[in-house]
Nucleic acid binder design. Structure first.
Lengths: 218, 218, 218, 218
DNA sequence: TATGAATGAGTATTCATTCAT
DNA sequence: AATGAATGAATACTCATTCAT
């Protein structure tokens, strides 16, 4: 067999790559357009495939070349969000050196994700939250993994005696509710600015240090 | 000008009143049906004018005699929710004897409203939250008034030295976020049961007493 | 109460009747158009609601005011056919004086229906034959009743010794197959003319008199 | 002109043959898949090119290299049916030793084809019967040839005095109608089982021996 | 006051087909 | 020879809304 890489072969390969690239591009374009429309249209209910198609400048039919159906597209939008969400939470965990610091940083990461990705956040946690628990082939970092990070941090803190002896689930739910409440307040009502949201989150955390956690911080 | 009230005029007036009465009645019927369907149907997107019409036993066209359009009807549904919401918060305020107790009871009332009216809560605070700040003629008890109750309670508590000297807005936002977070967690994700929601709310409040509030309760 | 029939009342009544008439008219128009399209389009598969709408000159939506959905329209088309079919078979039965004459006349009536309503026949017996056994509210004369006529005639003939002692079901199926075969041959293939179809049917019947039936006719 | 067969030419020819061979192979594969899907899917309306493409593992576009369009493919599916149909009828003819036996066996073969290939039968004789008389290049055994078999058998029987002296066309049509009626009854209405269909066919034939045919069988 | 008739705009989805490569 | 990309035209169906009465 001829192992030489001929010009023809190179061309074919290149064409293949370009095509692959284009394919990825259009996929990404569609996803972006979908997110944009969510933002504009005020969310879930007005969202339609045809609008997405118009937004990207392709025919509605074309969407079906990249996504199985409307729900598949939505699912990918959501998972795209969860991927980044998981990374941010993990980064928060990694950046902390003590259990309590980790909890604080995870909370901040959560808050920052919500503030910087309001549309995604809305969709992920408020409109299609059932998707949180759907498996998507090829996607390992689902929300479940993200919460594993939070649970791990709580677990460590409990084990090392930093927390009053409430059950683990109470802490995860409570801490989640803390940040979720603030994010949702900002996103849904626009009553507070992102800066205020951060300030309130700091206060919220501070009260925990004296009111919830067993050992006061030095 | 003829100032005499003729029999004819009196008759007309009476007919007008009766009509007005009927009008109000059907209005109320439509609104009730709308609320019912709204709660039953699971909310915003499935809600249709035709279903409402069928529910009340009138033709779809008739709805337009009482409400400008679908959104107008929806707006009134929302305000119907706010009316009850405001009453429950007010009742919480009234039931308390000290500022802190009032805050606690308002929080509980908020939580109970959310748990017992999830569909409404969703619409009011998560899907069409912009409606919170729309004025609707004839409706005095909007969400703004509801928050006036919370603000009043916070104001009293601050003035009487029960709270650490953070700005009033921080407290209202924080306390709101606390309960909103828990309610939203329950409604959106279904990860916690109503009972757990209440328990977490109690823990959340307890931590405030030692960690956030200046003077411990007697 | 005023029992007098006022002009107003008469007008209302008239308007109601006219409307009712119009409604019936449009319904009938739609049904006719549907049948016509069946003829033109070559049948079942190309048949679409939108085409029907275009044919009658109304918007597609309007069809839904008169029929629940596509299948409902089809069902009514079919039942419209069965109504006449049943009447023709019954007339055949009634016209005969002896059991065998009745059988012959029923067969001829069947044949004539098929020859004069090929599109309906096709739909009823060849394309959506499962509809034969569906009940439609308000329609009493379904195909089942039609076949009751055939069965009754066979039963009489058997009882009075005109037929060789095969089971009743064999006769009904065989006689049905006889005429159905001829009709279908004419409709589907166009290989024989209606006249030839009648001639063949006569031969078919004649052979029965000597080959199938117990007693020869006088 | 250069009459010499160069090596180059021979090579080209060979390549052409191979290609031709491959082409035929894929063609056959597609046709088989189409027939399979056709029989499985329940026929005409659910049948789609894309499904065929998926079934053979090639892209939809590829189908167009072998068949002009969907209808062309369908036409070949039909002729595929006629090929087997013709073979079965011919086998019936060949298996008989007397004219009447041949007629009987041809009828049985017809019946068996219908019972074992209901979907095909439906398409061939009931839905797209116009295809029966379309010429398709390369296909010699069309329905016309199949009927030639029937006609030949009738002709022999007439000539040898086995049949009453009706015209030949009457016999072919009548015998066709006999079996077609039974098959269609089974396929379209499902009112009789295949076994019953065979039994009725036997009765039908038996009546002919005494009622239609000139000389009784020995 | 109430409504029947009608529609235009919109929804998701499927399919046959073309074209450049 | 084979295909990936793309599309135009359909399909059934739903809904909010208008208008004449």
């Amino acid at each position: 067999m001829n192992q030489v890489v001929t010009r023809q072969k190179r061309t074919q390969q290149k064409s293949l790559e370009r095509r692959e690239q284009q394919k990825t591009d259009l996929r990404a374009l569609i996803l972006q357009a979908a997110v944009r429309l969510f933002e504009a249209g005020g969310g879930y209910e007005q969202f339609s495939l045809r609008q997405v198609a118009e937004e990207v400048g392709y025919s509605p039919t074309t969407i079906y070349l990249y996504f199985k159906d409307k729900d598949d597209l939505l699912l990918h939008v959501v998972f795209e969000g969860f991927r980044e969400f998981g990374q941010m939470l993990q980064a928060g965990y990694d950046a902390g050196t003590t259990p309590l610091e980790r909890l604080r940083l995870i909370g901040q990461a959560y808050l920052e994700f919500g503030l910087s990705h309001p549309v995604h956040y809305r969709l992920m946690f408020m409109q299609r939250s059932e998707m949180m628990f759907q498996k998507l082939e090829g996607h390992l970092h689902t929300v479940v993994d993200s919460f594993a990070v939070l649970q791990a941090a709580v677990h460590e803190a409990l084990e090392q005696g930093f927390l009053a002896p409430y059950p683990l689930e109470v802490y995860t739910a409570l801490l989640w509710a803390d940040v979720h409440g603030i994010v949702a307040l900002q996103i849904s009502t626009g009553q507070i600015t992102p800066e205020q949201a951060r300030a309130i989150n700091d206060v919220s955390w501070a009260r925990n240090l004296t009111g919830l956690l067993a050992r006061p911080q030095p």
